[in-house]
């Protein structure tokens, strides 16, 4: 894939990630986001976070499955950082719109409510990953340590989905779609490794 195409695609990804936020801010200011703008903004940014996380996590299995698409790795950091950006906006909806910046209310929530705790845990797990997303950090940490650290993204994504399930009322199944999607991208890793192991065993002649 030529650099020029990748740059053009990167511009498209930026637009695709930022345009929804522009849309959201516009409708928040116009109060045209529906009956409950606070809930709508929280839902919008939360769902966006999980979708971006799943897309980010899909990149590695896609590369392994279709070697020709190896170049998609060049989008992984960018998508991961956008996931974190959405997570920050999502956190802001909680801190500002739901809690009115009341520290007491938030401490009360975090200590009592597993739903808030799971969401906050996911954000705190993403934070070091965003901070160590630079080339400099990879060099400084060493590839192996960096990889190990960045496995936290699995825990973050799972916490995020748990947070979603705990946040909806019993009986509501809206988080099902994203849960299945995350399940697929996570299960793809061991499955692809297993398939690879089997195919490589087939080519290795018995001693």
């Amino acid at each position: 894939m030529s650099n020029r195409v990748v740059i053009a695609l990167k511009v498209l990804v930026h637009v695709a990630c930022l345009a929804p936020i522009a849309w959201l801010v516009f409708h928040l200011l116009e109060n045209t986001l529906g009956p409950d703008p606070t809930h709508a903004a929280a839902f919008f940014t939360g769902r966006g976070t999980l979708r971006l996380l799943v897309i980010t996590l899909a990149i590695t299995p896609v590369r392994k499955l279709v070697p020709k698409l190896g170049w998609v790795i060049r989008f992984r950091r960018m998508l991961g950082l956008y996931a974190f950006f959405y997570a920050c906006l999502h956190l802001l909806t909680y801190v500002w719109l739901y809690s009115g910046f009341s520290l007491a209310a938030m401490i009360d929530d975090i200590s009592q409510r597993k739903f808030i705790t799971a969401g906050l845990a996911a954000w705190f797990l993403l934070l070091p990953l965003a901070l160590t997303s630079t080339r400099w950090s990879i060099r400084k940490l060493g590839g192996r340590n960096w990889n190990r650290l960045h496995r936290l993204v699995y825990v973050a994504a799972i916490s995020g989905v748990i947070h979603y399930w705990w946040g909806v009322k019993q009986g509501v199944r809206t988080p099902l779609g994203i849960t299945v999607a995350l399940g697929i991208v996570l299960a793809a890793r061991p499955l692809l490794a297993w398939a690879k192991g089997r195919s490589s065993r087939e080519v290795v002649p018995e001693a």
Binding site: N31, D36, T38, A41, L97, Y98, A105, Q112, R113
Partner: peptide, 22 residues
């Protein structure tokens, strides 16, 4: 008395703009 998943201290007014909801 809070709900198990959220506080009941505040409420959101339906239809209000986001800066006046709480």
């Amino acid at each position: 008395v809070d709900h198990t998943e959220w506080s009941q201290k505040m409420q959101r007014v339906i239809g209000a703009p986001f800066w006046k909801q709480l």
